[in-house]
Simulated assay, not measured.
Amino acid sequence: MADALAGPKTVTGPMIRAWIETSAEVFAANRGHLSDLDSPIGDADHGNNMNRGFNAVLEKLPEGDDIGALLKSVAMTLIAKVGGAAGPLYGTLFLEGSKPLMGKTELSQADLAQFFEDAIAGVKKRGRSDVGMKTMLDALVPASEAFQAETAQGGEILAALRAAANAAESGMKATIPMQAQRGRASYLGERSIGHQDPGATSSYLIVQALSDAVEKASE
């Protein structure tokens, strides 16, 4: 079992490209679900926005395996194409995460941990938000923490990504009883309680897509 979980020692440029492509597929498949989640507490357009944004991302991806350049392209396209708060926030996530990765064609486990940290720091600053406010951070921060915890225990990249995806899913579900403190949902006050946050859901889908892409490339 340990060998089956070991997987790759690094994440390569083609794996990152596969992650981006997998994310686009996931948003196409979950477009309706995400918009349904957004309907009672937002503009009912989150699924359509993310689907449109990642379709544009695929059209504009540069050639080559420079991981920083790939992620920066994702960032700039999402900022340009995704409406509402999602475009700037997801754009910031990929942009800040890409900065130390420019020129790299493969990432170590430490590089991935740094990507999570930098991306989250950017989102916190841009959104003036933190865990517990019913936002995408409620999925992203647990994912980052789980990735680091699994790494500290000796788990390799694939095991750490699986742990991150599981933590992101739990964090996503934990937004249901929360009262929103940021975005349009915050205007609803207590009426936002009982609804799963669409941003946390799309963040979980992105983390899960990364785990799935790396696992598939390792088969």
Results as ranks from 00 to 15, higher is better:
Leu70Cys: 07
Ser35Gly: 05
Ala44Trp: 00
Pro142Leu: 14
Lys173Trp: 03
Ile79Met: 15
Gly183Lys: 05
Glu117Thr: 12
Ala110Leu: 14
Ala44Ser: 02
His33Asn: 09
Gly194Cys: 06
Leu158Gly: 11
Leu95Phe: 13
Gly53Phe: 01
Asp111Tyr: 08
Pro62His: 08
Gly42Met: 02
Met178Ala: 07
Asp45Lys: 05
Asp36Ser: 13
Asp130Phe: 11
Gly189Ser: 07
Asp197Trp: 02
Ala213Ile: 04
Gly199Ser: 06
Val207Cys: 05
Ile79Tyr: 13
Thr22Val: 10
Thr10Met: 11
Pro14Val: 09
Asp197Tyr: 04
Phe94Gln: 12
Thr77Asp: 03
Leu61Ser: 09
Lys125Phe: 13
Gly42Tyr: 00
Ala6Gln: 15
Thr201Pro: 01
Thr92Leu: 03
Ile120Leu: 09
Gly32Asn: 03
Ser108Trp: 05
Gly199Lys: 00
Tyr90Asp: 07
Ala209Ser: 07
His33Glu: 02
Ser35Trp: 01
Ile67Pro: 09
Ile20Arg: 03
Ser73Ala: 15
His46Ala: 01
Ala185Met: 05
Ser129Trp: 09
Ala209Leu: 01
Phe54Gly: 02
Val123Leu: 01
Gly194Arg: 06
Ser39Cys: 12
Ala75Trp: 09
Thr12Arg: 03
Met133Thr: 08
Ser35Ile: 02
Tyr204Glu: 11
Gly68Tyr: 07
Ala152Gly: 08
Ser39Glu: 08
Glu63Met: 15
Lys99Ile: 12
Asp36Glu: 10
Ala174Lys: 12
Gly122Phe: 06
Glu63Gly: 15
Gly42Val: 01
Ser23Arg: 07
Ala149Cys: 13
Thr201Asp: 00
Ala200Tyr: 06
Ala165Tyr: 00
Ala80Lys: 14
Arg191Thr: 02
Ala160Leu: 00
Glu150Thr: 14
Ser23Thr: 11
Ser186Arg: 08
Ala80Thr: 13
Val131Arg: 14
Lys104Pro: 02
Lys81Val: 14
Ala69Asp: 06
Ile67Trp: 02
Gln114Leu: 15
Ala110Gln: 10
Ala180Asn: 05
Arg52Glu: 00
Ala143Asn: 04
Ser35Met: 02
Phe147Pro: 05
Ser98Cys: 14
Met178Ser: 03
Phe27Ile: 01
Arg31Gln: 10
Ile20Pro: 03
Ala174Tyr: 06
Leu71Gln: 12
Ile176Ala: 11
Leu95Ile: 05
Ala6Asn: 11
Leu161Pro: 08
Glu96Arg: 15
Thr10Ala: 15
Val26Asn: 10
Arg191Val: 10
Asp36Thr: 02
Met172His: 05
Val123Gln: 09
Ile67Val: 07
Ala168Asn: 01
Gly47Cys: 01
Tyr204Val: 05
Ser144Lys: 14
Asn49Ser: 06
Pro40Tyr: 07
Ala85Leu: 12
Gly132Pro: 02
Gly97Met: 11
Lys60Gln: 14
Ala29Asp: 06
Ala44Val: 01
Ala149Gly: 10
Ala80Ser: 15
Ile120Tyr: 05
Ala6Trp: 13
Gly132Trp: 10
Ile193Gly: 04
Thr175Ser: 02
Gly189Leu: 03
Lys60Tyr: 11
Pro177His: 04
Met136Phe: 10
Asn166Arg: 14
Glu150Tyr: 12
Ile193Tyr: 04
Gly91Ile: 06
Arg52Cys: 08
Asp65Thr: 10
Ser98Pro: 14
Val141Ser: 12
Glu145Leu: 15
Ala209Lys: 01
Met15Gly: 07
Gln181Gly: 13
Ala163Ile: 00
Pro14Ala: 12
Ile176Met: 04
Glu96Val: 10
Ile120Glu: 04
